[in-house]
Nucleic acid binder design. Sequence first.
DNA 1: ACTTATAAGTGGCAGTGTGCCACTATTTGC
DNA 2: GCAAATAGTGGCACACTGCCACTTATAAGT
Lengths: 236, 236
Amino acid sequence: MKTSSQNHSVEKDSFEKPILTVDVAYLSIRGGELEILTIKRDKAPHEGELALPGGYVHCDEDEDLSETARRVIAEKTQLEPDYIEQVETIASRSRDPRGWTATVLFMALVSDSKRGEDDKLGKDCQWVALGGLKRKSLAFDHGELLSKVKERLVAKSRYTSIPLYLLPKEFTLSEAQKYFEITTQSTLEKKSFRRRLLDADIIEETGEQTKTGKRKAALYRNKNDSNVHFFPRMIG
Amino acid sequence: MKTSSQNHSVEKDSFEKPILTVDVAYLSIRGGELEILTIKRDKAPHEGELALPGGYVHCDEDEDLSETARRVIAEKTQLEPDYIEQVETIASRSRDPRGWTATVLFMALVSDSKRGEDDKLGKDCQWVALGGLKRKSLAFDHGELLSKVKERLVAKSRYTSIPLYLLPKEFTLSEAQKYFEITTQSTLEKKSFRRRLLDADIIEETGEQTKTGKRKAALYRNKNDSNVHFFPRMIG
DNA sequence: ACTTATAAGTGGCAGTGTGCCACTATTTGC
DNA sequence: GCAAATAGTGGCACACTGCCACTTATAAGT
C-alpha cells in the first residue's frame, strides 16, 4: 500500500544526505527559576533570534554524539555540564528552511555553583528564564525542542535524583525541596520529601550550618560516588 | 582545553555530511521466547550476515523518522507493528566501514496474532529467537543495538503495559503473565500480577473461555481505547 | 465413582514507601 | 518575654506490591 520503491535500491550510493546536527538544551536554576542558555544567531536564517546552542556533527573530530554535544557547549561557554542525556532525534523537511534536517537533542544540566557569574560568557550567549520566553520566541523549532526537554526533565525529576545536579555544592534540605518543586512543577510535602531524599543515601551532611535565616539549617552535599538515583516510587 | 575550532565556521557549507540511517529492532514473542526479525545481507559489507532491517532516510519521501522506520519495515514485511518507539541515536566513525554513520534506533513490537504464519515473508527475512543468537552474530554493531532495545524493553515492561502489544488478540491472565515474565526477564507472583493488570482497567473479559487445558480460563482482550498504561510502581 | 495431578483463581495479611498534619525546636526582631 | 518564621520530627493513614495458603474446576488414570 505504501508508495515506496519496492526494489532494494535503498543502499545505492549518492543519496541525498540529510543534514545532521546536535542541539543542546542547557539548563540551570537561578532566581528560583529554570534558565536556558541561548545563542543569538548572527546569520540567516532567523538572524538575530535566540536559538539553542548546536552545530553540525564533525565527522573528523567527534567520536560520537555526546562528544558533539559537549564540544558545541564548550565552543560557547567554558561550562562543562554536570549531567547530559540524549533526549530524542527530531527530523523533518520543514523544520529548517535549508532543507531536510535531523537534529539529535540533548538535555544538559549545570549546578548553580559551577555556573558562577555569567560575566565570562560570550556576548551572543545569554541565560534566559523559561518563564520569560514567549512562545515562538526561539528560532527554528527550538521552542518545541525545549518543550520536549522540559517534559523529560519534569518526568524524570519525579522518580530520579537528577535535580541534585542543579543545586549548588552545599545546600539545605529546604533548598533541595525548592529545586525539586521547580523541576517537577508541583509543590511537595516537606516530610515526605526529606524522608525520601535521606533514605536514598545519596547525600551527606557537611557538618556545617547556614548562618542566615530564621533558624540554622543543616548543610548537605552530594555523595561523591553517587550516580543518578532511581527512587522506587514517583513523587508529587 | 578542547581542540575544537574556536571560530564560528561551524555553519559554513560543504561539510562532510555523515550518513543517516534508521534501524529497527522488530520484536515478537513465539514459542515462549522473544524473536527478532532479521535480514540476511545480500551485499558487502557483512554480506551474508544477519542484520536488523534498516535503511537510509529518504529525504524526499519521509516526513519524519518514525515514517522512515515504518517504511523500512513495510519494505521487508507486510506487518505493521502494533507499537513503535524511538530508543536512541548511535553514531561513530567505526561502527560502519563505509564511514562516519549515525543510526536512529527504533523498537517495534507486533502481536502474535497479527504476525500469523511466517510463510509470506521474503526469504531474506527471518524471525530468530534471541536465545539462539550468539554474541557477535549480527552484522555491524547490531548486536549492541539489540542489547539497547532489550534493555529498554525489560525496563519499560516493569512499569508499563507494553508487553500487551505482544500478546494475541485474546489471551488468558496466565498467558499475559508468561509474556510479562519474558519481557521483564523475571518470575512474577500470580496474585500480584493479576490484581495489578485488572486494576489498571486496560483489559476486559471477552466472555469466552479456553477449551484446552486442565481448567477453563477466562479470555481477555485489550480495551480498544487504551494507550500505553503506566503503573504506579514497578513490578518484579 | 473416586483419586490424583495440574492449572485457574481467591482471601487475607505483611511490607514498603508516600501523603498528610499536627507538633516541637531554634533563631530573629520587636 | 513574645510573635513570626523557618527547620525539623512523630505518627498514622493510604495505596500498591509480596507472599502464601487456600479453594475451585477439569482431565486422566484406576
